[in-house]
Amino acid sequence: MKAEPGRRSLSGALAVGGGLVGATLLVLLNVPAGGIVGAVAGSAVASGFRGRPPPPYGVRVVGLVLLGCAAGVRLDIQTLETLLHLIVPLLVAVGLLLALDVGLATVLVRRYSVDPVTALLACAPGGVSEMAVLADEANARTGIVIAIHVVRVATVVLVALPLLLLLLGPS
């Protein structure tokens, strides 16, 4: 979508403003993954569902760098040592999750006519933001990928987490 720089900047600011309002609202309502989901929904509404040009790519790069930094600072020396000790079984476990992803994606492709990249990203055991960005950059059906990951996070937070706390918590 081509647009004049001035109009594009204005549209980008509008999308980010809409995202800010949406994210604030869902975070205040304690919705799981409310920050990212609210930003997506808010900016979709503010942009008139692709009626206006999206924000420049640099906006996304800045956001992803910040998300990367937020994840990176979770590591400390002791944790790193433990992770190195566990790295082989951990990689095997993540590899099995990825194999399951491929299997589930194959079912979506063969039985529900979803394109392979969308199916792979929708079933992947990764973060909402990360998979959504990969989907958008791969020209996959980003809306489906986001929606399915929201279902995954909601299932984990609203169903699996309370059950696990009940089972593993102090009796």
Partner: peptide, 20 residues
């Protein structure tokens, strides 16, 4: 972290079509 989510989410939402 919240600002990062807003920036990333906004670039995604602005690309969503009406058929989502």
């Amino acid at each position: 972290v919240f600002a990062a989510q807003v920036l990333v989410g906004s670039t995604l939402g602005a690309r969503l079509g009406p058929t989502v």
